[in-house]
Amino acid sequence: MTSGAGPVVQLKHVTVCRSGVVVLDDINLSVNKADFCAIIGPNGAGKTTLLKVILGLVEPKSGEVLVFGKPPRELGAQKAKIGYVPQVSSIDLRFPISVFETVLMGTFARLGVGARPRSADYQAARAALERLGIAELADKPIGRLSAGQRQRVFIARALVNNPELLLLDEPTTGVDTAVTAGFYTLLRQLKETGITVILVSHDIGVVASYVDSVACLNRSLFAHCRPDEVQCTEALRAMYGCDVAYLHHGEAPHIVVEEHE
C-alpha cells in the first residue's frame, strides 16, 4: 500500500522558525508503518507545528521531511492518504453546510479538482459518520452541533478516505469520556489494520494504554520511546521543567505534575 519501504514519516534535523523564533529545534523522528505514536508536551511546545510540518503547511528552515518517502509538497494525489484533524478549525460556524456535506468534503482530496463525488464517495461519507456514531446528525447544519459533536465530524472527515496516515491534534478536546475511550479503541483498530497514527494529546495517562510510542516534545524532542519507558527517562522532568510523577492506576498509567514552589 505505502510507496516504498522505510518509515511513513521521517524528520531529519528539522528546525522550524516562526516569526524569527526557533519553535522546533533539530527534530529527528521517524514513525513506521502501523505505528501508533502520541506526541506530548506543554502548551507552546511545538506539537501543532510539528504536525503542520508533516502536512507541508509549515516549511522548515532546515532539515528534511519525508512522508511516504517524499517531501510533503510533492505528494500530489497521495495527499488523499493523509487524514488530519486540526486542533482548532477556523471554519465559520454560520456556514450553510451540513454534517454530511462536511464529511463528504474529505473525499475531495482523492477526487481532484473539477470532478464530482460519486455514489462510492457518498457511501464512504455515510460509513465515516456511522463509525463515529453521528449518523443521525447527518443533515444538521455544522453550526448547530455541540463542540464535541463537531469534533467527531472532523474526525469522520479525516477518516473518510481510509487514510494510511492519520494526524490528530488533540482530537478529543471536548469529547466526552465514553466517546473518547471508544475513539482511542477505534484508532487502535485502525492501527491494527496497518494505518499509521500520530496523535497529539495532553491526556498521556489515557493514551498511554493505547499507543506504541510516546514522543516528548518541547521545542526539541526529549524522548521517543514506549509509553512505559517514559517514566524511566528524565524527559518529562526536563520537558515540563518540574517534577512529574508517572503513576499506574490499574491499567492506565497517569502523569502527575507537581506544583512549582
Partner: peptide
C-alpha cells in the same frame, strides 16, 4: 459548474483544502 465543489471547499475550510492537496 466545473469548480463548484472546489470553490466551496476553499471558501469553507482553506486549511483542510490545502491538506487535501487542492490548488
Amino acid at each position: 459548474a466545473v469548480f463548484y465543489k472546489d470553490l466551496l471547499f476553499i471558501v469553507f475550510d482553506p486549511e483542510a483544502a490545502i491538506v487535501a492537496g487542492l490548488p
